[in-house]
Design a protein around this nucleic acid. Structure first.
Lengths: 268, 268
DNA sequence: TTTGAAGTCGAACGATGTTCTAGCACGTAT
DNA sequence: ATACGTGCTAGAACATCGTTCGACTTCAAA
């Protein structure tokens, strides 16, 4: 049989930190022809790796998602990333959708929401929103994951807790705090949804400069018949130089400003 | 991969007006038994139907999407709806993504944006937003379609034109009008994204009463350890009775109110 | 040594998007 | 009338997908 005396295998229980799954994996298998008489399991069935934890699967899945996008995401690719077969994943994650749930939770956990400072609550809400936007943009197609899912994992409720802490510390009444928290999440999600992929210095394989898209939109709108689209043709220039970052700040200003007014009205 | 909106390859000729595609489709085929001697192509290869226009395909696709959702949407199901094979669709639409582009455009066309009345521009913007929300909610999973796509079809730019007309008639400066228009679309999209499916009297096959979900969320938050989640446990009650419609109106109020202030500041 | 649970994975099933290719119906030129 | 090209249909096939099944190995307890 495959005697290959492997090194000591880590304890299958206990989630040890697994910084780099499948990095130093030996690539050579056993090229020797199978013996003619006995059907020996030459490329055997089990136990030949470090034992494939759920965290390692999630990490690999996130890697595949960042690299290939949601359309290129498949269980077989995730398994390939871990040097195993797709069937092996199902013991740990149950389904592709379940795995994507875990990936989503993992990404949400990257958010850093500041500790509440009552004097600066308005700015802190904006900081939280900016952090959320950056997190979403850091990983490809994460917005598409967030649609059907109500985030309820430990990382998600930690974000909820800390965001609500800022709002309540600022004097926002409870029901208004909940409403505006939910609204903030939706609104940031919606904004980043319409931003095309990566915008900052991060660039995918196909560079898509944002201002070039804007220029194409401008040209298209200017080419429309003015008698049928008088407004579009006139404001076409404003479409070209519409800065995403500035628009996001405008959104935050509108949101926080109106929220602060309502909080102070109802507060005292 | 190829996700672009490349539809018609060799458009044969101008799109002839096809008022009602696929409405009164006759269902009967040819139930008579095949003659015994000659091998007649009874259900042969071609030419036996009303000739399968692109509009009919889009209508059938929308029907399938409403019924089965985006996950249940497949070219074979659309073809089945038209009593044909999946391969036949590709002559007209190019790809599944291209077909979904057309469906999205079709749905956008359902929006009714009012004619501009300068005295009521703020209320009219809200009306446009409400119409958009209703349109999105009327069709299942339409939000998920809107993600990668920049709507640029004739119906989409008609909506843009009419919305911009309202804003500019109200005295909003051009660049601010463009910014707030883009923002409005994102924000409404984002809001409806987080609403679970159908909310109004419209109910899918699986009734999902919204307040029951809220009650479950409340119970879950109340069960959390208070020393770790002091805010979540305290405001849990506010989660239960969070009305979607009221929250949407709050969003519109925040948006339009801040917009009007900026318009009047910069206006004169 | 025996037993049972935990975990792995090749093989296979059904469904998917898309392409290939053979074929039909019909208008036009010969 | 015959031939032909073109617009259009549709069966078959290919590669890939999510998921299941069952045989298998390993490990710890009995």
């Amino acid at each position: 049989m495959a005697g290959e005396a492997h090194n000591q295998k880590t304890n299958p229980r206990g989630p040890d930190g697994h910084p780099e799954p499948g990095d130093g994996a030996d690539l050579e298998r056993e090229p020797l022809p199978s013996p003619p008489f006995q059907r020996v399991p030459e490329r055997g069935t089990a136990r030949r790796r470090d034992p494939l934890t759920r965290e390692a699967i999630v990490a690999a899945a996130l890697k595949v998602l960042d690299r290939d996008g949601l359309d290129g995401f498949s269980m077989r690719r995730v398994a390939e990333e871990l040097d195993t077969g797709a069937a092996s994943l199902y013991w740990h994650v149950g389904s592709k959708d379940g795995l994507l749930d875990l990936v989503f939770e993992e990404v949400i956990g990257e958010n850093e929401i500041p500790d509440p400072d009552p004097e600066r609550w308005q700015e802190q809400i904006k900081e939280a929103a900016r952090a959320l936007r950056q997190t979403i943009q850091r990983h490809r197609d994460i917005v598409r994951l967030s649609i059907g899912r109500i985030p309820m994992g430990p990382n998600a409720i930690r974000v909820s807790e800390r965001t609500l802490a800022i709002l309540r510390a600022g004097g926002v009444p409870d029901d208004l705090a909940v409403q505006s928290y939910l609204l903030l999440m939706s609104v940031v999600n919606g904004f980043t949804m319409d931003e095309g992929g990566f915008t900052e210095e991060e660039q995918g394989p196909e560079a898509r400069p944002a201002d070039e898209v804007g220029r194409m939109v401008q040209q298209y709108f200017e080419s429309l018949p003015p008698e049928q689209f008088p407004n579009l043709t006139e404001v076409a220039g404003s479409f070209a130089m519409s800065d995403q970052g500035a628009r996001f700040e405008l959104l935050l200003d509108l949101f926080v400003e109106g929220l602060a007014r309502r909080a102070s009205e109802r507060g005292s």
